[in-house]
Design a protein around this nucleic acid. Sequence first.
RNA 1: GGGCGGAUAGCUCAGUUGGAAGAGCGCUGCCCUUACAAGGCAGAGGUCACAGGUUCGAUCCCUGUUCCGCCUACCA
Length: 800
Amino acid sequence: QWKAASGNTIVEQQKQLGESCDWERLRFTMDEGLSKAVLEVFVRLYEEGLIYRGERLINWCPRCLTALSDIEVEHEEVKGRLFHIRYPVADNPSVSLVVATTRPETMLGDTGVAVHPDDPRYRHLIGKNIHLPLTRREIPVVGDAILVDLEFGTGAVKITPAHDFNDYEAGERHQLPRLPIFDHQALLDPTALTSAGVEEDIIAAIARLPVAKARATIEQALKERGLLVKVEDHKMAIGKCYRCKTIVEPYLSPQWFVDIKPLAEPAIRAVEEGRIRIIPEGWINNYLGWMRDIKDWCISRQIWWGHQIPAWYCERCNEPFIHRQTNATGAVTRITLLQGAKPVVARSAPAVCPQCSGQQWLRDPDVLDTWFSSGLWPFSTLGWPEETPELKTYYPTSTLVTGLDILFFWVARMIMLGLKFMPDVPFRDVYIHALVRDAEGQKMSKSKGNVIDPLHVMDQFGTDALRFTLASMASPGRDLKLAEERIEGYRNFANKIWNAARFSLMYLEGPRTSRPSVERSFADRWILSRLNSAIRTVTSELDVYRFDRAASALYHFIWHEYCDWYLELIKPALQNPSHPDGPVTRQTLVDTLETTMRLLHPFMPFLTEEIWQTIPHEGESIVIQRFPSPEQAWDAPDAEPRFLLLEQAVSLIRTGRALLNYPPGQQIEYGVAHDNPDKQRQLQQLEPHLAHLSRGVPAISAQTAWPPAQRLRLVAEGLTIGLLVSGDVDLKKALDRLVKQREAQDKEISRLTGKLDNKEFAAKAPAEVLTEHRERLRNLQHDQALLASSEQQLRTLLGA
RNA sequence: GGGCGGAUAGCUCAGUUGGAAGAGCGCUGCCCUUACAAGGCAGAGGUCACAGGUUCGAUCCCUGUUCCGCCUACCA
């Protein structure tokens, strides 16, 4: 139904069926429920006087032969030419006004010339008549401060009310007649030119020419008469039809309009008052600005697909206003209802004409703008105007996710029509997602050929990887460049998860015992606590539509906490069948993996479902499970700092191993000392983990108690590790590192000292900043002593 | 013309009550260590566009400049 509403499907069908398409059949296939809603809305708005028919200047596509609303017109900057044309004063041809225009061919439809009322050059001409060149007409000079910009061009502007929007307005202000000179295909119309008093030879030269060709002819004629003063290059914007890219013409024709202000006002208030939230907020002003400046909505289209307008015309009463265009064989190809026709708007054709009792009715051939029906989507899909249970349950909905490009096309219309026909807004939140661009930042477009085909990307990297990538890049207010490397990175992430699940399954054989978190092992308590934290972050970020931060929290937790550390930490318990922690660890492994899959599921639905089905679980499908919520019992405030200590020690040992070029497999011996007794004790408790993760034999004791040997000592935040140096190793790299570290610390120490010595800093900075700075300085100075001693020992070693 | 946004590592981007500069990819070195080489470990790399201002202190706040996007408009 949505596709029908948007018209996209119909357009595709139109293409496929070509000329042989059965229009009536196609109209019939449009959803009946939607048609009913459209009919109802149209009639109700008409009865309230909010829909009217009138002859107005509208944007017209001379190729599609249909009206276009403002937002269906695309603007393009082009190089144009500005023609300066001499218009002689009627009663004194020696005096003339020079007007500037980019469209000299429209001059034949001029019905006035405007100058600024304050312009001393021309003020005296206001009220006089001007002879319009190439015609037998005289037109008045009017003063108009709105149309004329004193600074621009010559200061005199021709007025062509039938072919220019501003001139239309100006024509209204000065009661100037409207003289159209183009027909509906934007060809110069000989009949109209005759009524516009154009000279016969000019008519003969330009009749039935398209505007571009007529322009050259007019230019030539003006030149021959010496009326073309000059031509200069000029940058300008032209409008093109969003469908066929034909240059649109302002065209005078009778159309159906919605009086939009009364609908827009409640829609503005709904956003101002926060009953509808737009996220990110930056777009609110965009929306409000557009809505406050909104113009009546032209809803009739002269195309054959769409919902036909429910208006009927008595053929007898309206006979003079029904224009039938025929082809060579006499068949009617197009019916146009001219200005003056009197419609009867009703849900079905009237029986008899109230005026003449005639019974022959012609239904308006126009159809509605596709966004008219799309705008009804929030309630028409739910059975409106019937009061269905669905309508009651699902209106309003919570969130509408959309791109900026249809915020006005679609979202604004849904808000206006929803508020008009329902007692509440159609949705609470509107989330505007970023526009995806290609790797060069270009907007994707079919004509440019730089479209990244999602199906192709999904084949290459997987659907979950693409989905996760888009989520991770969804920073608000910023368009995103989709680069393949990024997707590839998340493909690897998906692979990592898959392997982690495979690993878990390998070791799940055997009994599992559930215990309260506090009774589980260090590793278990730590990961449960971290999982809790991940749940909190992901949930709160999703609440505020920060999909990027939620995705990155998941990525970090799964890869760099769960895989890198937890799975490594529990290997001894899993791989040794008689390990006492085995049963509880296996249970924790299931608990955490299962929860993590549910947490990740919205981001990677396929992978998580697949894994979830293979691990112990309850329920039929992950998609209908509850989204995880934090378990307070999982918080382990003691385990987290312990882990950081362990991580720090392991990293330092690994650094030493790399510096000494000891291969990862080689068992090493080292001493571990911390100058904080508490932490030293904690390290002793973590000894098995330390040994396992470092693949080595630690001696955790004061440095003085380490077995005598040649050692490389590394220092970080009070922690010293001393690796046994054996065999033929190059200590130069290690010395370089120590020196570099010491220099960096020197710099930091002098920075902190300088800051703390600054009296104003000491006086004005908050107390906690001061204590934190002092603490850091003390630690650094302490490390500095350790480093210095380490460096000296190393130099001694090198010297020996 | 008006409005909005951006300028942070080689690339793509995070970084909100102002108080030690972050991630991914890429790069360098060592590893096929029994989940994973689409991987592991350890590293290198930044005057946070420019110029002023506010502040004890600025990537963050203010002003101006340059460059790049987007939206919008009738400059004939």
